[in-house]
């Protein structure tokens, strides 16, 4: 795209070994006014892997996601403490360019929220605001729609309103819209929770494929989904405490915290 350029996806993979985190969250606490929503969270996010964040509702997992692209700032009185190092740089610092940050760390929301524009204009929105020239747009739109596994379904009606698509298609369109600005990380906030099982399954497949090209952090309260799609997993408990983090396999097979064991066994949440 602009500035850093469209680094070919494969080169990026070799840039950094998978062992070194692309994002490191260190001692993160978060407040809405006086209320503490996250306490002392430490998580590494590894590149080209899917990291799942689980927990009962109200445990702060969506808030956690919104810290990573600083979207929490829209809420008056919200405050984050600690460090979120993205490629070594603390993004919680005041002087960080949030526009650039949000281009590099994209987001997909819980409910599909395509703009009331055409399918094409939805995907082209991001590249346009970042100054991509018109003749490059077609190619970018097609590539993003292909990566979101939507191209074949919409290629004949790109000028139609995005609101005419089904819920699952709308969510894939939102994924394409986020991919069109070539983010390095994609944050997904319960991307399947408002979809029917078939559409949800498609999105899950997609998440696994996306991890080839970028880093995915997905928040979910669906444990099976987390087990299926993620390599790493963290479990938040009420009060915003990160009770468990590690390889998904290990988190599910041998959680250290007894409360997490109960949660994963379906005893609450």
């Amino acid at each position: 795209m602009v500035r850093e350029g469209i680094a070919p996806v494969l080169n990026r993979k070799q840039d950094r070994p998978a062992s070194e985190p692309i994002i490191e969250i260190k001692g993160l606490s978060f407040f809405y006014g006086r209320e503490r929503v996250l306490q002392d969270v430490n998580i590494p996010i590894f590149p080209h892997r899917v990291t799942a964040v689980m927990g009962p509702s109200g445990c702060g997992k969506s808030t956690f996601l919104r810290v990573l692209n600083r979207l929490y700032e829209l809420v008056p009185g919200a405050r984050a403490q600690g460090e979120v190092l993205f490629r070594g740089r603390n993004i919680l610092e005041e002087k960080v360019d949030v526009v650039e940050l949000r281009r590099r760390i994209g987001m997909v929301f819980q409910r599909p929220n395509p703009f009331p524009k055409s399918i094409y204009d939805n995907v082209a929105y991001g590249p346009r605001i970042h100054g991509v020239r018109r003749r490059e747009l077609n190619e970018i739109v097609e590539r993003a729609l292909r990566r979101a596994a939507l191209w074949d379904e919409v290629k004949g009606r790109l000028k139609k309103s995005a609101l005419e698509l089904s819920g699952g298609q709308q969510q894939r369109l939102c994924i394409a819209r986020a991919l069109a600005v070539e983010p390095e990380v994609l944050l997904m906030d319960e991307p399947c929770s408002s979809l029917d099982p078939m559409s949800a399954a498609r999105i899950e497949e997609l998440i696994a494929e996306l991890a080839d090209g970028l880093t995915v952090v997905v928040v979910t309260h669906n444990l099976q989904q987390a087990a299926r799609v993620s390599r790493y997993a963290g479990v938040f408990l009420a009060g915003g405490e990160l009770a468990e983090f590690g390889l998904t396999r290990q988190v599910f097979s041998s959680p250290r915290d007894p409360r997490v064991r109960d949660y994963l066994a379906g005893r609450f949440g």
């Binding site: 692209n69 526009v99 987001m107 929220n113 991001g126 346009r128 605001i129 819209r177 600005v181």
Partner: peptide, 19 residues
């Protein structure tokens, strides 16, 4: 949710309002 989507793509507030 539309404002959030726009901001999350790296749009400025002004671009979000106009676009």
């Amino acid at each position: 949710s539309w404002r959030e989507a726009s901001l999350a793509l790296g749009a400025t507030r002004w671009q979000t309002v106009l676009g």
